[in-house]
């Protein structure tokens, strides 16, 4: 009984950690530009597929280059890190094509919802052209995890190592990011731009560079999430990131737009709540995140930890 509960809680915390990663990605971009990057889900997919290819996976029969793969496979952790960096670079590209042209023209922020979604559609369909619509499974066993055993026994409960790694890696990424934002010079500059871009510019902060940094980090977080989920579950098809992107959006609002602790707390809350849904009702699990979101928005229109803003006339 206790073992099952422990397993359930760990599963919940692990997927909660991934939700927090995605939500933090939204938060970074939202805090500097005040817009939502709807390509986040597509970047999640990109990260999953990059990890797969970097670990030596081969393209399936429906892809553009069937049977093609990178020579030799990288260890799990290195592939994950490089895939995150790669997704970050794709995130930068999304900023260039979908956000920068609108900013230069001072266009309505609403338009960025459409352009970023367009970028997402392009990315997901490029993935489909390259990799085909089929699902991919990562190699399992100790080879895949760099010599670690497939499962551990903790307090009598058998726990998949990858779930534990998922939780640890996302916790480490979230912690590193929060510390960096809080303490470092770069992090402070980013927060200054988030507070007031014009004033930050006057104080000598290159705000355009900070915007690019936010997009890179945001893409890297999404890519990291995609790689982690890919390794722990599988890659069911190029669209798999979109669902996580949506859940991340719910987490984002649940915690309060632009709030880093809110994104983390919201992610964990959502992951745990989903894990506690009994298996008979598992079909309804996907609606739970949005039902919680709905109720929270009605009680606290700015999210759990959102800042209250005063309407100025």
């Amino acid at each position: 009984m206790i073992e099952t509960l422990l397993q359930t809680l760990l599963n919940g915390a692990a997927s909660g950690g991934v939700y927090a990663l995605v939500a933090l990605g939204y938060t970074l971009v939202f805090s500097v530009l005040g817009v939502i990057n709807f390509a986040q889900g597509a970047l999640f997919s990109v990260g999953g597929y990059l990890t797969f290819l970097l670990m030596g996976g081969r393209i399936g029969v429906n892809g553009a280059l069937p049977g093609w793969g990178l020579p030799g496979g990288l260890p799990f952790w290195l592939a994950l890190l490089l895939a995150a960096a790669g997704s970050g670079l794709v995130g930068l590209l999304v900023e260039r094509v979908a956000f920068a042209p609108l900013r230069r023209r001072n266009a309505e922020p609403l338009l960025a919802l459409i352009t970023s979604l367009g970028a997402g559609v392009v990315l997901v369909n490029l993935l489909q052209l390259l990799m085909g619509a089929e699902g991919y499974a990562f190699p399992h066993g100790s080879d895949a995890l760099g010599g670690l055993p497939d499962a551990l026994v903790i307090a009598g409960a058998r726990i998949r190592t990858i779930q534990l790694l998922l939780l640890l890696i996302s916790a480490a990424a979230v912690l590193a990011l929060s510390l960096w934002l809080e303490r470092s010079r770069g992090g402070r500059a980013l927060r200054a731009v988030a507070e007031d871009a014009t004033t930050a510019q006057l104080l000598g902060i290159h705000s355009e560079a900070m915007v690019r940094l936010a997009f890179f980090l945001s893409g890297a977080l999404a890519g990291l999430g995609g790689g982690l989920i890919g390794v722990s579950v599988s890659l069911p098809g190029p669209y798999f990131g979109i669902g996580y992107g949506l859940k991340g959006l719910a987490v984002l609002v649940l915690g309060g737009l632009g709030s880093v602790p809110g994104a983390i707390a919201g992610g964990l809350l959502m992951g745990l709540a989903e894990a506690l849904v009994p298996s008979e009702a598992s079909g309804w699990r996907d609606a739970l995140a949005f039902a919680i979101l709905f109720v929270v928005l009605l009680l606290r229109p700015r999210g759990l930890l959102g800042r209250r803003t005063v309407e100025k006339v």
Binding site: L246, V253, G283, A291
Partner: peptide, 28 residues
């Protein structure tokens, strides 16, 4: 009556939540 108290992007996301809830309900 409930969601129209929300402003801007919060309303957009609450309505996306409604779409997802209806979709999952029809599925289940």
């Amino acid at each position: 009556r409930l969601v129209l108290r929300l402003q801007g992007i919060y309303l957009a996301i609450a309505t996306i939540a409604l779409v997802e809830i209806v979709r999952v309900a029809i599925l289940n």
